Amino acid sequence: MDKQSVKQSLSPEQARVSELAAELRILISSVSRKLRAQASAGEFTPSQRSVLLRLERDGPTTVTALARAEGVRPQSMGATVSGLESAGHIKGTPDPADGRQTILSLTPRFLSMIQASRAAREDWLVREIHACYNAKEQESLAKAIELLKRLVSH
């Protein structure tokens, strides 16, 4: 069954929800691209980005734990980690409990890059919100944000 046939078989409510979903997906992609264009902490592969975000969120850990959390083989994670270490984004220190293990963490320099990048993106958002929306529209935006939070927490 092609897309057109599927759309024709939907009720008006289902069709509207389908349209909303498509519009929201496109809008979120556009906003994401705009934010990435404002400041970047570097160009990373999806697996590198995932490792960096996990280390930031969960704290220091081992290659084995990262591999398990990301659902990849330790050898694959080792290659990802090696590239990030070479670039100076993460560092390894011996595990005090098990000298055979290495504990990986983000470098202070990379943490500073992340903070600067986020600040630049937030500054852009503040400027754009002030420029594009009056006070009443900003309230509507705040309500929409609450609805979107519910969408992602469901």
Rank of each mutant, 00 (worst) to 15 (best):
M1W: 15
K3Y: 11
K3M: 09
Q4C: 05
S5Q: 15
S5G: 11
S5F: 10
Q8W: 03
L10G: 02
L10R: 12
S11T: 15
P12F: 11
E13M: 13
Q14M: 14
V17M: 11
V17H: 11
E19S: 12
E19M: 08
A21D: 09
A22Q: 07
E23D: 14
L24C: 08
L24G: 07
L27K: 09
S29C: 06
V31T: 10
S32E: 08
L35C: 06
L35P: 03
A37V: 01
A39Y: 12
A41T: 09
A41W: 07
G42H: 03
G42F: 03
E43H: 04
F44V: 01
T45E: 10
T45H: 11
T45F: 11
S47L: 06
S50H: 02
L52T: 01
L53D: 08
L55I: 04
E56W: 09
D58N: 05
D58V: 04
D58Y: 01
P60R: 14
T61S: 06
V63E: 08
V63Q: 07
T64S: 11
A65I: 04
R68A: 13
A69Q: 03
E70A: 07
Q75G: 03
Q75S: 07
Q75V: 08
G78H: 02
A79K: 10
L84D: 03
S86P: 05
A87G: 06
A87I: 00
G88C: 05
H89L: 14
G92N: 04
D95N: 14
A97H: 10
D98I: 04
R100Y: 11
T102Q: 15
I103D: 02
S105K: 03
L106F: 03
R109H: 15
F110H: 07
F110W: 01
S112N: 15
M113T: 12
Q115T: 11
R127Y: 00
I129N: 00
C132S: 15
C132T: 09
N134D: 15
N134T: 01
N134H: 02
K136Y: 13
S140G: 15
L141D: 02
L141A: 02
L141P: 01
A142V: 10
A144C: 14
A144R: 08
A144L: 14
L147G: 12
L148K: 04
L148W: 08
L151P: 04
V152W: 10
S153I: 09
